[in-house]
């Protein structure tokens, strides 16, 4: 007969695991990946592959030879970080820059804090911001999307992103109408389907929302957090648009450009670096929305969601301490 096991209750366990959650996030990113491959072709495949492999490699090297602990690269967290990093960079980035970005993502932002679950900042965003500051030229020259089966005219045509155009235009003193009439400016249909220039993952709002819905159904993320970010951006940008439509663009434009959907659905909801309860999550989301618009309207960079998320990541422990979930049976008078 077997030896009985003694342990504290509960004796059953739900079927959820870290690995399953991580791969659910990967599945949720598949539509956006397909869109990026459709528009950027082999370049997108190249960036995705290099990024994921580099992240896995660095995680393995660090766990095996630096920490000398168990190697857990198959838990999927490095894959998620790799894909998110790839989603945040242009498709024509040189491979060596990408590998450095992956090293920062895994080595600096994740493993130096102790690995999975201990990083205060979203690793992929740290990697992305590091690259943006270190290689500003390459990181801001965006290839123009050309559908996979369309005739290839020339290789590597680059152009500014919609937000870049906007920033440039406002800086030059143009009105919104003038800026919008620029032939390079994508219209709303392009923004929804992703037919514009930009980083790998920020292309199609529809694909991103699709993945987001999957994650909500799969209970990987709460819908409240992305919605609070999107609503804040919409309301805050909307107020300025109503005050002065000539200088401040329509809020829908803000929602569909500059990776806002990507940030709100995939980056801000990162479990490790976001607050632990609903009130906290909503406050965190509102904070991200506000900072994003502040940077977009008055900051030096055309887009701001990466910085906004990183700034709010820093506030997460504070939010966790300040806002507690509603206790059952709290005496109310």
């Amino acid at each position: 007969m077997n030896m009985f096991t003694i342990s504290g209750s509960p004796h059953v366990h739900g079927d959820e695991s870290v690995k399953k959650i991580m791969y659910a996030v990967v599945y949720a990113m598949v539509p956006a990946m397909l869109v990026s491959i459709y528009f950027f072709g082999l370049d997108a495949v190249r960036v995705l592959l290099i990024s994921v492999l580099a992240c896995l490699f660095f995680e393995w090297v660090i766990q095996k030879y630096l920490i000398k602990g168990p190697v857990t690269i198959n838990d999927g967290s490095a894959v998620v970080a790799g894909i998110l990093l790839a989603f945040n960079i242009p498709a024509n980035i040189p491979a060596w820059m990408l590998i450095i970005g992956a090293l920062v993502t895994i080595g600096v932002a994740k493993m130096s804090f102790g690995g999975l679950g201990k990083n205060p900042f979203n690793p992929a965003l740290v990697g992305r911001v590091f690259m943006l500051i270190s290689f500003p030229v390459q990181m801001t020259s965006w290839p123009v999307a050309k559908p996979l089966f369309a005739p290839q005219l020339t290789d590597a045509i680059t152009g500014p992103t919609a937000l870049g155009l906007l920033k440039e235009g406002v800086g030059a003193g143009k009105t919104i109408e003038q800026i919008m009439s620029d032939p390079q400016m994508p219209d709303y249909m392009d923004q929804l389907t992703g037919s514009m220039s930009g980083s790998l993952g920020e292309m199609s709002a529809i694909a991103l929302i699709l993945g987001g819905i999957y994650m909500v159904i799969r209970k990987v993320i709460n819908w409240q957090l992305p919605v609070s970010i999107i609503l804040t951006v919409f309301v805050f940008a909307g107020i300025f648009h109503l005050i002065d439509p000539q200088h401040y663009i329509n809020p829908t434009f803000h929602l569909l450009t500059g990776g806002l959907m990507l940030g709100a659905i995939y980056m801000a909801t990162d479990m490790v670096s976001s607050p632990m309860n609903m009130t906290g999550k909503i406050i965190y989301g509102v904070g991200i929305g506000l900072i994003t618009i502040i940077i977009r309207l008055w900051g030096a960079y055309p887009e701001g969601i990466s910085f906004a998320i990183l700034i709010m990541n820093a506030f997460t422990p504070l939010i966790n301490t300040a806002f507690k979930p509603k206790r059952f049976g709290l005496i109310k008078k």
């Binding site: 959820e16 695991s17 870290v18 959650i21 857990t72 838990d75 967290s77 690995g115 999975l116 679950g117 201990k118 209970k219 479990m271 490790v272 670096s273 976001s274 607050p275 632990m276 309860n277 966790n320 507690k324 979930p325 509603k326 206790r327 059952f328 049976g329 709290l330």
Partner: peptide
């Protein structure tokens, strides 16, 4: 595995506590 701070324990706690914490 290490805690990934998913906050699922907080969501399911019937007493509104923070079990991870």
């Amino acid at each position: 595995n290490p805690c990934i701070r998913c906050s699922k324990c907080t969501e399911v706690c019937p007493m509104g506590l923070e079990p991870y914490f």
